[in-house]
């Protein structure tokens, strides 16, 4: 049983399908994350956002389990991505002078390892910024606004979300293919949904650095 699972994981299709499955769960996480973050816009003093954070905090061991799950998800997705990247380089030891497009590649599909690595670097910055920081005095909302009101902070977050958008542009239809669900009847829908979803998630996240930089938490609609 175990050896069978091991053989599956070592196989190229096993690795790809696990990368696809973890990617799907990570997309779901991003949707939950960005929707939760939108509560920052609900009021001027960040009370709603802080209450949302406190709610998560109050889950106690459940929150810890969720975080552990995220570490496993991200860890597996990143490890598989790096492993396949290195294997793929090895699969063509002598490079072409210039491998020209035959017509199906996209910027997003060709740069998944690069955008992935940028997102990983961002992830480390992001965890140091908000997960490991001590915000017991001013509250999380104030910390977020402070960080993103600074041009450097806003710049890092905004650019990283650009890379996330490019990564997600390819991600959804790719994971559908990797998991073997492809059918001409719903292929156009999968492609459209994937692109719209990817851009929407990244764009919603990107509003935080832009609006924080512009309004420093004093939302004009409040």
């Amino acid at each position: 049983m175990l050896s069978r699972f091991g053989a599956f994981l070592r196989s190229s299709i096993g690795k790809k399908s696990l990368m696809a499955f973890t990617g799907l769960l990570l997309i779901l996480f991003l949707i939950a994350h960005v929707v939760g973050n939108l509560s920052l816009y609900a009021d001027g003093d960040g009370a709603k956002f802080n209450a949302y954070a406190a709610q998560l905090e109050a889950l106690g061991p459940l929150k810890l389990a969720a975080e552990l799950g995220l570490v496993i998800l991200f860890g597996a997705h990143i490890a598989l991505g790096m492993r396949t990247y290195l294997e793929n380089r090895e699969a063509r030891p002598v490079r072409y002078k210039d491998l020209a497009p035959k017509g199906r590649r996209t910027l997003a599909s060709m740069t998944m390892p690069v955008t992935g690595i940028v997102i990983l670097v961002f992830l480390v910055i992001h965890i140091i910024d908000f997960r490991l920081a001590d915000f017991s005095k001013q509250g999380l909302a104030a910390l977020v606004i402070e960080r993103l009101s600074h041009p450097l902070g806003a710049g890092i977050y905004f650019i990283s979300m650009g890379f996330l958008g490019v990564h997600l542009w390819h991600a959804f239809q790719s994971l559908v293919q990797s998991l073997g669900f492809r059918h001409p009847a719903y292929l156009p829908a999968v492609k459209t949904v994937g692109m719209v979803l990817g851009v929407l998630i990244a764009a919603l996240f990107a509003t935080f650095p832009i609006l924080c930089l512009m309004f420093k938490g004093q939302w004009p609609w409040n």
């Binding site: 190229s12 096993g14 396949t84 035959k102 199906r104 998944m112 293919q177 990797s178």
Partner: peptide
């Protein structure tokens, strides 16, 4: 190497074989 779903294979195939066959193999393998 490992498939990245870039689909250049389909574009280069002199017989126009569809990448739908890759998805079918993926589900056959799973």
């Amino acid at each position: 190497g490992n498939c990245g779903n870039i689909y250049e294979c389909e574009a280069a195939c002199p017989k126009g074989i569809s990448v739908e066959n890759i998805a079918r193999m993926n589900r056959e393998y799973l």
